[in-house]
Design a binder for these strands. Structure first.
Lengths: 236, 236
DNA sequence: TAGAACCGGAGAGATGATCTCCACTTGTTG
DNA sequence: CAACAAGTGGAGATCATCTCTCCGGTTCTA
């Protein structure tokens, strides 16, 4: 409106400022990775050894930070999909893809949230999703032609499968990392067209203690345990 | 401490009060069922056509209300488990149990939360859990002896399977109710020891629009869309 | 019809998140 | 080596939600 910005010269940041911007990005990546997108910008700032103000000076809001951060992650997923598609055996490609995706989910809860949510990234990330979709469809189609993937499977089911995987990742998280490796093969054994035996499970079972801890930390409904607990002794 | 309550005569409620107590219970059941335990007592009160105060006069806090409510639900699950165990074909029993449990989850998000969380009900509900566990173990053992359940499956895996089911229930909820019916058979096809073909899926696939809505409403990370957006015009 | 029991719902108080503001510090540049 | 623009920290303004309390007013019941 007033100062007509010269198209491509937004003035570079001061050296320390640029350094801090990087620090924020790194910290954000780490914190989001282990806590998911629900992580606070305060947490990220603290982790970066900076004040929140600094974060907000570089990124107008949380969403912008997320956008800046996960373009790369999505590119990684795109590449995974391409590799899966390049496989001659499409079923092997699918197994590869779902396993690697599970690894991604387990390693980066932030990326998982971005991937599974669609509430994010109206922009570039949405485009990524659109590019990945037809590749998935092709992968499914080829795996079925080759007779290994069950014929009634559809590309849209992949999302549900990912969600199931996500559930096992979250369930075993912090209790037995990599515990999900027990469940991905089980799931895949349900997707194959036919089989004589069973795929060996890459991970031993959870024992009762594991199960107990896992259920304790299962997210749904926390809070409300003993919230107020004050002001009583006044009735008589 | 002061008035030593006579063991079994807590004085009956006034007629209208008792009626309202029932109303609360009914409303709570309905609201929790469709929104899960994260539902607010204000919501419940409103749904019951009462004030929050009334709810709190009958139930000291949210947890007490939940406790009062879900004993029955758990009894229902116990009964389901017994029926599954009574089945001669243990695999059929397991299929029955997991399917019915999925139905329960879909029909009552509150019960699902109580079931899957262990953060709840130090008391009676915990006991229920303890009674159900050995029955599950027995069911698994018998299904394996009969050769239909994969040999490397363990009773502790049931929780993970439930969680996967839960993920599909939530995913399809409000988009295509009963959509989970497509995924439970897939999962079970992964648990069976061997199979020649594939179990027919009870539910058609999600189309692209369904998928879109489902992803939109996928819970993880909501908020933060456009939170403040006020106070600006003051710089010049 | 007295008065105990009950009711509604505003609001106290806790929590927890996003984002702003400004006194102060630091880097850069002539 | 100033001078000053750029950058910084972090307390706190705001907002959004919950849970649970309080009390003036209403309703049952005996």
């Amino acid at each position: 409106m007033d100062t007509p910005t010269p198209p491509a010269a937004p003035r570079p940041l001061r050296r320390d400022a640029e350094l801090n911007r990087q620090r924020v990005l790194v910290a954000a990546k780490e914190v989001f990775a282990e806590r998911g997108l629900e992580a606070t910008l305060d947490e990220i700032a603290k982790h970066a050894g900076l004040g929140v103000g600094t974060v907000y000076r570089r990124f107008p809001n949380k969403e912008a930070l997320i956008d800046a951060l996960f373009e790369e992650g999505f590119a990684q997923i795109l590449e995974l999909t391409e590799r899966a598609l390049a496989e001659a055996d499409a079923w092997a490609g699918l197994v590869f893809l779902l396993t690697r995706m599970a690894e991604v989910q387990a390693a980066d809860f932030g990326l998982r949230d971005v991937m599974l949510s669609e509430t994010y990234g109206r922009d570039r990330i949405a485009q990524m999703r659109d590019r990945i979709k037809p590749m998935m469809e092709q992968l499914v189609a080829r795996a079925q032609e080759q007779g290994l993937l069950r014929a009634d499977f559809r590309a849209t089911d992949i999302m549900a499968v990912q969600l199931m995987i996500s559930a096992t990742v979250e369930f075993t998280h912090g209790v037995r990392d990599g515990g999900w490796r027990r469940y991905v093969p089980m799931l895949l054994d349900g997707l194959i067209a036919r089989r004589d035996g069973v795929t060996e499970l890459a991970e031993p079972e959870l024992d009762d203690d594991d199960l107990h801890s896992a259920m304790q930390s299962w997210p749904r409904y926390r809070r409300g345990s003993a919230p107020v607990e004050s002001r009583r002794q006044q009735d008589l």
